[in-house]
Design a protein around this nucleic acid. Structure first.
Lengths: 203, 203
DNA sequence: CCATTTCCATAGCGATCACTATATATATTG
DNA sequence: CAATATATATAGTGATCGCTATGGAAATGG
């Protein structure tokens, strides 16, 4: 069996994953620009040099937080696309999982990506473009699912536009999750949105 | 006839309205926290004391900018509600006017209110709550129109939830206006959203 | 003209920003 | 026990934050 050999020097009080978890929740709650290094290290119970030993800049930390969010919550929200061959069941699962993530659990409300860096200074242009890309990627993933289910739609349906519409629904739900934080209201929004998909289906 | 008597002291280089116009566009582009006093006064061609002579704080300036936006663009976007007795025509006009504002003209893209201070530090809690209120007010205005047109809907329709859905549509369009800035795409989103209203109508 | 009124520009306030140089604390290695 | 390696805490960097005290510039009133 493999023994975990302790590393050479003084052990760190917080590993990278724990640092990232705390940073993710703060960025999720307050956004990139509104979250200061001071707030981060205070929440972590460490000091700035320890943070910078793990992540070389605030920007890198934020990017890692976004990656972490995508890999866990983002994956969860889109998991329905692969689970269901019926495009309606697939998208209903996606929207309901969005509600779960946006208002549920022991984490901030809303969505790190949907409302991330929508407003920002020119100084953060690169990060803002990255977030806009991620939003567009999400829409593209939905569009690809629609295209792979083309036979389920009435002929001539603009599947790309339909995916943009559901992207807008998700982004709108993310805003309202911040404002009212009520799963019931979000479910109603999801259901109205799903009725559009229902109307585009062929039976 | 009334003569405009020049005031007593040194004349100001920029009146309050011009200051507000420039501030509004910068806040619209970058948001509240990402826009610094330095950027504002540089864009205005004045110095901080002149700005503070007109508006006593950054927060007050931002609130005035939001008021200005509501009175002009906000009013324009909701004007369709009073113009049309047909609820479908009314809401179609609203969504199309949103597209006009969100991607058109010689001003920033997106919406000052829909995506304003969705992410923010606790220090800006009061402003963030104000913006959330404005978003909910918009939804309520749409809900009130629906209720005044109750006879046009199929019986038992949840008009409040329907209004929330269109609020989400508008907020989603505001995000995508920032990301792609394309009126054609937004119109497709608006049309899909309107099909939900069409399905709720009684003929 | 001078006095008065009003606004503007310079300069800088204390606080906070993201980030780091230095030295000390805590572990393993030999 | 050193000697080495790593992470830590203290304390601070220059820059920028929102905001303002001071004094001079530019107008009218007498």
């Amino acid at each position: 069996m493999e023994m975990e050999k302790a590393p050479r020097g003084r052990p760190r009080r917080l590993d990278k994953e724990k640092i990232l978890e705390i940073a993710s929740n703060l960025f999720w709650q307050q956004g990139y620009e509104a979250t200061s290094i001071n707030e981060l290290v205070t929440a972590m119970g460490i000091t700035p040099p320890s943070l910078y030993a793990a992540y070389s800049s605030k920007e890198e930390l934020y990017l890692a937080a976004i990656d972490r969010y995508s890999a866990s919550y983002g994956r969860q929200m889109l998991s329905g696309l692969a689970l269901h061959s019926c495009v309606y069941e697939a998208l209903r699962t996606v929207l309901y999982e969005c509600v779960e993530v946006f208002v549920g659990g022991d984490h901030p409300s809303g969505c790190m990506i949907s409302t991330g860096l929508v407003e920002s200074s020119n100084a953060q242009g690169a990060l803002a473009r990255k977030l806009a890309d991620l939003r567009q990627q999400t829409i593209q993933i939905i569009a690809d699912k629609f295209k792979s289910c083309e036979t389920q739609f009435v002929e001539g349906t603009d599947l790309q536009a339909l995916a943009s519409f559901f992207g807008a629904t998700i982004q709108g739900m993310a805003v309202q999750a911040r404002d009212v934080n009520c799963p019931t209201e979000l479910h109603k929004i999801a259901d109205h949105s799903l009725s559009v998909l229902q109307a585009c289906r062929r039976f």
